[in-house]
Amino acid sequence: MATRDPNGKHPIQKLMDNPWLLLVLGIVIPTVSYTIWGWIELWLVPTATLP
């Protein structure tokens, strides 16, 4: 479990007090896990042989 640093701030508070980091995470995580992953999936679809 997370523990407080010597300054007394809980790690989750440090995260929540950093709006720019939250903004970056909020953009990077969905971009990678939805958009880029989706592009890779589409790129890897093979051509049909229609047997």
């Binding site: 479990m1 997370a2 007394g8 701030k9 809980h10 989750i12 508070q13 929540m16």
Partner: peptide
Amino acid sequence: PPAGWFKA
């Protein structure tokens, strides 16, 4: 918010 607002 005041410092130390987060309560686990």
